[in-house]
């Protein structure tokens, strides 16, 4: 029944709204802390940006056709995607690992709502979204200076592929967190996460040559981290040539596949979960 379906979606949206409000209330309770968190993450972004400004003092491009402003479009796209993941999923993934270890996951399992939804969305770190401002300014500023002016279609596809990128990163993060079911403890989640997404930070064309090409293929098709930022950033920064369309298609398939696989791993993890203590 479509009516029931709509109701179901509305219910999840309502629950999500409650989570969002609760998190905001909590964030606003410790307002100084919130402001400090927002400020430090903006400073971090600005220092990163300063580093690339420095790099571009010594070169005019990076990889294949990524000039200074094209690369800044890439950088801004990465900021959008990473700060979304930081704000929505990082606190939850950490919490999930902790819930598995302490046995508090029991409480989530008994709730009349999809466990993965509950575990993935219950906390939002609003301060993480402060980077959006920096990213938006950087994106606007750089787009006025790039050679390629994106078409309407490209502009419309951009947010879609940004969301795909977020979905891929989410799908990589959840299994890492769920691994604590089998490993017992998972303190180094942050570390491993950092090592994985590190590869998404630069345009994929810098990986070429004897070692680079296999690396690029691996991180495009098997663990699709290279797709995350590259596909949306290319849409805006570079003319859409026949090279890019297949990649956009790959991104679509990769997003769906990684969501399905992470869902499967999540269910498997729940199956192996044996609570803790008493």
């Amino acid at each position: 029944m479509p009516g029931a379906r709509v109701n179901e979606v509305a219910r999840y949206l309502r629950v999500f709204g409650t989570f969002a409000r609760n998190s905001l209330v909590r964030d606003m309770t410790f307002r100084t802390n919130f402001i400090l968190n927002a400020a430090t993450s903006i400073i971090w972004m600005l220092m990163n940006l300063a580093f690339y400004v420095l790099v571009f003092r010594y070169t005019s491009s990076l990889g294949d056709g990524w000039g200074k402003y094209e690369f800044f479009v890439f950088l801004a796209t990465g900021m959008f995607i990473n700060s979304t993941v930081q704000a929505f999923f990082m606190p939850n993934a950490n919490e999930f690992g902790e819930q598995i270890r302490t046995g508090h996951l029991d409480f989530a399992l008994t709730k009349p709502i999809d466990t993965q939804f509950l575990v993935s969305f219950s906390k939002i770190e609003w301060s993480g979204l402060s980077n959006f401002g920096v990213a938006a300014v950087l994106l606007g500023y750089s787009l006025m200076r790039t050679q390629h002016q994106p078409s309407l279609a490209e502009c419309l596809l951009y947010p879609f592929y940004v969301v795909c990128g977020v979905a891929i990163l989410y799908s990589l993060m959840m299994p890492l967190a769920a691994a604590s079911v089998w490993l017992g403890r998972n303190e180094s989640l942050y570390d491993y996460w950092f090592y994985v997404i590190n590869f998404s930070r630069y345009p994929m064309d810098i990986y070429h040559g004897t070692f680079g090409t296999p690396l690029r293929l691996f991180f495009t098709y098997l663990i699709p981290v290279l797709i995350v930022v590259n596909v949306p950033a290319r849409l805006l920064a570079k003319p859409l040539d026949p090279d890019n369309w297949p990649l956009a298609l790959v991104a679509l398939v990769a997003t769906l596949a990684s969501l399905v696989i992470s869902r499967w791993i999540f269910q498997r993890a729940l199956g192996s979960y044996r609570s803790a203590s008493s």
């Binding site: 010594y58 990076l62 570390d191 950092f194 630069y202």
Partner: peptide
């Protein structure tokens, strides 16, 4: 594992020097 970021450094700077 700590050397993994070094791998991306290799390629980043190779691209800079190539350009």
């Amino acid at each position: 594992m700590r050397f993994l970021p070094f791998v991306t450094q290799i390629f980043l700077w190779a691209a800079v020097f190539e350009a």
